[in-house]
Write a protein that binds this DNA or RNA. Structure first.
Lengths: 234, 234
DNA sequence: TGACCTCTAGAGTAATTACTCTAAAAATCC
DNA sequence: GGATTTTTAGAGTAATTACTCTAGAGGTCA
């Protein structure tokens, strides 16, 4: 039996991701766990502490997916990175939507978050540079930096955006995964112009793997194909 | 003297952008205006109605910046579009951060927002296609579509993200404008690989115009320059 | 058994906040 | 100028919600 503290974080993360942190009260979390509010507050001083703990967890998870590159990087390494990071960002998707509110009020947390963003982007840049050294990418330093920023922003924003438009995804595992897949696809497209050599050879396959053609899924665009959404009442 | 309804929206927008919708109560808005809460609720049924009205306003503003392309498009047209849209998105920056919460609760508003995103992206795609027809851009249909999605996501997310990391921007006009400028820069870099002809000739100038070199500004990266952060453990 | 510590229950509270209600002022109309 | 409608004030309320407090259960070690 895992510790109560861990279980609180687990269910809090789940509820936050599904309904948004703002709609989830500490009493909800306790109730979902079958524990008392008092017990919850025994483990966490306040709601912010829960969010902060979830952020720490999230950061560590991302960090494990961004080891400093050692030796020559392959295209497979890159895809490995990409999937791992997106997966982690997906799991912590509520954070990028609701964390700003806490950053606003908690300078310490904000400092940590800023550091996290800077470190992550620095580490990501190293990976891109490694790929360039391996001849898989061709870009100037400035272009690489801009690419890194765009990749980061896209990766961070994608989950929150798509879930805002598609709340049904919270209850629909298939839709949820489709959204994640399209996020990866978008990042692949972002990098595409800079790819060279072996990476370029794999590009079409990568696109095909992550392209979402499912017309039942209404993502950002109206479903591809001739049918543009009929009226759909909610 | 402008109507009370309009003034409510104006100050609400200002306060929302500065402090985040969540931290701004209806009483705050009334107080900032020097009117009574009762008066505010005479004009707007509830807080959601205010947000919804701000969204309508925002949508119209964006829409005015995205006229359907007629005839051949020039690179100047494109930059005109870009600046106008980013400016509008900047003015409604709180929306992209706080709207999801209301979308979650108000299916009608969500339908409108979804429609807005789809229409906007469709219209944007037409513009890109116009640029392609003018020989300023070279890309496949699929690439163009992916580019459009990435542009949209970036444009929508940029204000919220950078303000989350840099809350000081709310009180600092200079910093605020610098963040907006860098947002435009990032989008220019996003499009850069697809540019051709005259657009390509202007690329360097565009980058130079919007590049933010101010080292006093701490945006996403650590300040540009040779000093890259030492090792920092998490 | 008893002392001690960790963990839990659950009723309760203080503060916030979106929103209401009544009455009166201001504008408009005839 | 009186009647009617629109707009405003401002005190007040109901509901939410983060968080507290006390008491006690359960485990461990002597």
């Amino acid at each position: 039996m895992t510790g109560t503290k861990t279980r609180i974080l687990d269910t809090a993360l789940d509820l936050f991701n599904r309904h948004g942190e703002r709609n989830v009260t500490t009493n909800h979390i306790a109730e979902a766990l079958g524990i008392s509010p008092g017990n919850l507050y025994y483990h966490f001083r306040n709601k912010t502490a829960i969010v902060a703990a979830l952020f720490q967890r999230y950061r560590q998870q991302i960090w494990e997916w961004l080891p400093p590159p050692k030796g020559a990087l392959t295209w497979q390494d890159k895809m490995h990175y990409l999937q791992g990071i997106l997966e982690s960002m997906w799991q912590g998707r509520f954070l990028h939507r609701d964390l700003p509110h806490f950053l606003h009020q908690d300078p310490e947390l904000r400092a940590e978050y800023t550091q996290f963003v800077q470190d992550g982007m620095e580490r990501g840049l190293q990976i891109y540079q490694g790929l360039r050294a391996s001849g898989l990418i061709e870009a100037s330093d400035e272009d690489l930096r801009a690419l890194m920023v765009n990749t980061w922003v896209l990766a961070m924003s994608w989950p929150g955006l798509t879930h805002g438009l598609n709340p049904a995804a919270a209850e629909n595992e298939t839709l949820d995964r489709a959204l994640l897949r399209q996020g990866i696809y978008q990042i692949v497209c972002l990098e595409a112009p800079y790819l060279r050599g072996e990476a370029l050879d794999h590009l079409d396959a990568m696109k095909a793997e992550f392209r979402v053609g499912d017309t039942t899924v209404n993502l950002l665009f109206t479903a591809s194909g001739p049918h543009i959404g009929e009226s759909s009442n909610g």
